[in-house]
Design a protein around this nucleic acid. Structure first.
Length: 515
RNA sequence: GGCCCGGUCGUCUAGUGGUUUAGGACAUCGCCCUUUCACGGCGAAGAUCGCGGGUUCGAGUCCCGUCCGGGCUACCA
């Protein structure tokens, strides 16, 4: 049978990188084996479900480029794909009845208070907490009938077999076993009639012919319950694959308090889907050789469970930046310009910086937001010019967001001047003459379409005639006059892109600053 | 507390008993390139393979113990 896997999120909040990793591994695995990837929405907890969250999951997954073969947004032979809808359609009812008739499930009429007291007593006595029998596991038919006649609310619990060893063969950890007496009886159907994850997910996995249950390690401890359920029905168990968690710098499972974990935020920060996937894939999985930067296709070709690691991994932001920068540098300028345009026009990009509160004094979100806005306008106004600018900055940025501030001086009427740079380079005696010479050259020596070499020759000529030993004292003041900064692309290249009109205006302003 | 999982440079990892003085990558530092910053190239530093026993001619690799970390312990997923 061909491989069938499912991504079954519970849309109760934002899509974070842990969930992305989960989806990515499944996607890579399905594609590698030419199998099927299903999206199933686990919304059995009606109090926590949010439609906005589901929308974010679907749109983020689309942005990142993970596509499903079946799901609520596209349909498929196993519809519906939302568990609440499946419940309404009566999918689970016959199965819970069958399980009870088989003796593998029973009604339990305990009240929440009774359960709480039970746990308290267990805690005090240093026993493991959980429902290992209570009064209802072994209640007589009469007791149950009486409780039902009273109209008492009840849940349906799974009757975990006692005094046996439950073992699974986990694809990344090997054999894992439990004494079944340490496994409590999980609730399968809640008092409101909704199935729990334990029940709905396993029934659906069986009904949808899921071959591999790939999920995070946090599920390992409930695996024996799930295995026992498959056994109770007499179904073939899927292969269990418990992947290591992505943890925060503190080594703990990723959560909101670990700061930036929302996938959308990475997109807003200018990370591209390709490198992000590449990076995420490398946490907890390795192709087995030294490869790091891999294309989508290489990832699919190389991915398999044998490369999945058992130990948890931390999210190394610096490495993500490196991978992203590598991808930017590898792009064709035209494609890059399109990528940047898409990025700028995604509403969340500007919203993100607008709402961002920086704890780093060197990072000013408002300034980044403005630079991004200016870049968008500049691209619209003069695309060929913007393309030349992008080409020059492509080699020195790591994220799409970096283009904003890196390119700003090209588009500003007159660039913002860095006072330190001005102080350092505008003091020497020849600077006034230098600027005059260059201003005079604009329109004569320098015309639209002049090459970098033309600018280089002119500056070198000035060097010779004024007998200046090095080119630095000429290049640096000119750079500061033109860009406002001491760093940036090669001076001659940027002059050629700027063109004589802009150069002249900037030099005239710089001359004023000499006085 | 109970059950389960994990433990190789700061970080991600290679390594499935012997070509290992433990390899690669990010980050760090140095040199080269160079008009600057990057990029790129070269190089350095950085891991007594958590610790202790054992098995073996030989262990990061197998076994036991121990420590530390983590996950789960809901009518959440």
């Amino acid at each position: 049978m061909s491989v069938r896997v499912r991504f079954a999120p519970s849309p109760t909040g934002m899509l974070h990188v842990g969930a992305l990793r989960d989806a990515l591994f499944k996607s890579l695995f399905a594609r590698h084996h030419h199998g099927v990837l299903i999206l199933r929405i686990e919304d059995t907890d009606r109090t926590r479900y949010s439609p906005e969250s589901e929308a974010e999951f679907i749109s983020t997954l689309k942005w990142v480029g993970i596509e499903f073969d079946e799901g609520p947004h596209i349909g498929g032979p196993n519809a519906p794909y939302r568990q609440s809808e499946r419940k309404e359609a009566g999918v689970y009812q016959p199965w819970i009845e069958k399980l009870m008739s088989l003796g593998h499930a029973y009604k339990a009429f305990d009240t929440p208070q009774e359960l709480e007291e039970m746990r308290e007593i267990q805690t005090i006595n240093k026993q493991s907490t959980g429902y290992y029998g209570g009064v209802w596991r072994d209640a007589t038919a009469e007791q149950v009938a009486a409780a039902e006649a009273e109209g008492k609310p009840y849940v349906i619990r799974q009757r975990i077999p006692r005094d046996i060893t439950i073992s699974i063969h986990d694809a990344v950890r090997g054999r894992v076993e439990w004494d079944s007496n340490t496994i409590d009886d999980p609730v399968l159907i809640k008092a409101d009639g909704m199935p729990t994850y334990h029940f709905a997910s396993m029934v659906d996995d069986h009904l949808m012919d899921i071959t591999h249950i790939i999920r995070g390690e946090e599920w390992l401890s409930s695996a024996p319950k799930h295995a026992a359920l498959f056994d109770a029905f007499g179904w073939n168990r899927p292969v269990f694959v418990h992947c290591p968690l992505i943890v925060g710098l503190d080594g703990k499972k990723l959560s909101k308090r670990h700061g930036a974990t929302r996938v959308l935020d990475y997109a807003a920060q200018g990370f591209m889907a390709g490198p992000l996937k590449n990076f995420i894939a490398l946490i907890g999985w390795s192709p087995g050789d030294d490869r790091e930067a891999m294309s989508e296709q290489e990832l699919v070709d190389a991915f398999d469970i044998s490369g999945v690691q058992p130990s948890p991994g931390k999210f190394d932001f610096e490495k993500l930046k490196w991978l992203n920068g590598l991808a930017i540098r590898a792009m064709e300028p035209f494609a890059l310009l399109d990528e940047i345009t898409d990025y700028l026009r995604t509403p969340y990009t500007l919203d993100y910086f607008n709402q961002l509160v920086s704890d780093d004094p060197k990072v000013d979100p408002k300034k980044i937001e403005k630079a991004l806005l200016d870049l968008d306008r500049a691209i619209e106004k003069d695309k060929p010019y913007a393309l030349e600018v992008i080409k020059l900055e492509q080699q020195r940025v790591q994220t799409l967001a970096d283009f904003g501030e890196a390119c700003a001086f090209f588009f500003a009427e007159l660039p913002e001047m860095d006072p330190k740079a001005v102080e350092k380079w505008f003091g020497q005696a020849h600077v006034g003459q230098l600027f005059d010479t260059l201003i005079a050259g604009c329109g004569t020596t320098f015309i639209d379409g002049s090459d970098p070499v033309d600018y280089e020759n002119a500056l070198k000529e000035f060097q010779v005639t004024h007998q200046i030993e090095k080119l630095g004292p000429i290049v640096h003041p000119t750079r500061v006059a033109l860009t406002g900064k001491p760093t940036g692309p090669g001076l001659f290249e940027l002059m050629a892109v700027l063109g004589p009109a802009r150069i002249k205006a900037r030099l005239l302003r710089a001359k004023e600053m000499l006085k």
